[in-house]
Nucleic acid binder design. Structure first.
Lengths: 226, 226
DNA sequence: GGATTTTTGGAGCGATGACACCAAAAATAA
DNA sequence: TTATTTTTGGTGTCATCGCTCCAAAAATCC
């Protein structure tokens, strides 16, 4: 097994405390776990699958991650860190108006859901929707994550009303719920093998439902003066 | 246990062949299984959960249904029989035009996804999307079911073009993919506890993406003369 | 160097999951 | 009645699942 250890530092070169150094790269292992959960779901991913993909032993697993459920939570957070990056970058981009932000959101979704370097679709959108009572905790966690992104969309639309690029009589929560639903639908399509172009076009169609008309300021960048 | 048997007939009063009569109602047991699969998913539903909910023994289970997977297929067909009823009744209603058909489809979806007498959401929409390699068969089955309903929608839109109530330059497959995605999204929303009104309104918003404009015959019932 | 701390390898464990087997029971057919 | 067919109850089985324990190894701290 020849642990390749550099004096005083671990594999990634960061300083360590005392104790035997880990032979594996924790964040790499976490990514491997994330990928597996993403592809197979929580229930479909077994303990043995995990430690095999992560390249570690059962002992190291529990020493470093605690339990399957704890690992799933961590993998989920890792995923959200990652996807939240592009998601919020677009949603909160001050240089574009609200409608453009949502259009770009779907362009990026189509892209992210069909990249070759990770499983298709989304790790959150469909997770914990149908599960046994014993998975209540996980289920509630996923429901919360979904509600969070829907809430962020609603907030963005509200800002759009303030900025004047969204009609004032728009039901922000409902419009967000709609776009949230479309995103979940895209996740299903992606899982079923839809192409990037197909997802893109679905997103474009979804944008045709954007509220028409009487915004104070029809288009152009939102000023976000509020 | 007292099996209540009427001479020569089984519980449901239908004629039997020879052999010891079954003490349980097969279609009732199937419904119970369907409900459980619907609520918890395939992996989340254990053998013991099933026979408990169906009120039968392991022997009766395997004698009558073969295996968990076979039962799942049967439960799925049962579900499709059932949901296909209202789905195709609306989709193929000759008295309404294409756009109205889709609007009604979503009204009904909102209703069916939030009825008290069965689990919320849909048994097909999100099933088999994230699963291990060993569930390939089930996965492919569900992908096919989803493709089937999407195909039916596309077909209906094509008929709409023929009938003249849908613009001729409409991309039928893509529009169907969009509405299919929305329906999947509604399933997620329903599973997360969305109200009937919320689903309804999402459906109404989705209808705003309907192709505008240059149909040969703007509205009114489609004649289906083709 | 010795104490301490942490990770690792490897074996094992109790529970559950899905199913298999078999003889008895209860019906019909001959 | 007897033979045949089918269902039932009960028990057993075999693999997997998620996890635990323990002693050895490899680092740091004093």
């Amino acid at each position: 097994m020849t642990p390749k250890i550099i004096e005083g530092r671990d594999i990634k070169g960061t300083k360590r405390g005392r104790g035997r150094p880990a032979v594996f790269d924790r964040s790499r292992a976490l990514m491997a776990a994330m990928t597996l959960f993403w592809e197979r779901g929580y229930e479909g991913t077994s303990f043995d699958d995990l430690i095999a993909a992560m390249g570690i032993s059962a002992s190291s697993f529990y020493n470093s991650f605690g339990s399957k459920e704890a690992l799933y939570c961590e993998a989920t957070k890792s995923y959200l860190d990652w996807s939240g990056h592009w998601f919020f970058a677009i949603l909160n981009d001050p240089s574009i108006d609200t409608r453009t932000a949502f259009a770009r959101l779907f362009e990026s979704t189509a892209e992210e859901f069909t990249r070759g370097d990770h499983p298709p679709g989304c790790m959150i959108s469909l997770a914990g929707t149908h599960c046994p009572p014993g998975m209540k905790h996980i289920r509630e966690m996923m429901v919360e994550h979904r509600a969070f992104s829907e809430g962020a969309m609603a907030e963005r639309i509200r800002k759009g009303i303030e900025a004047g690029d969204v009609p004032e009589d728009t039901d922000c929560d409902m419009l967000a719920a709609y776009y949230s639903a479309v995103a979940r639908g895209l996740a299903v399509q992606a899982r079923d093998g839809a192409s990037r172009e197909k997802l893109s076009e679905i997103g474009r169609l979804a944008m045709r439902a954007w509220p028409a008309g009487t915004a104070r300021q029809q288009s152009g960048p939102g000023r976000n003066r509020g």
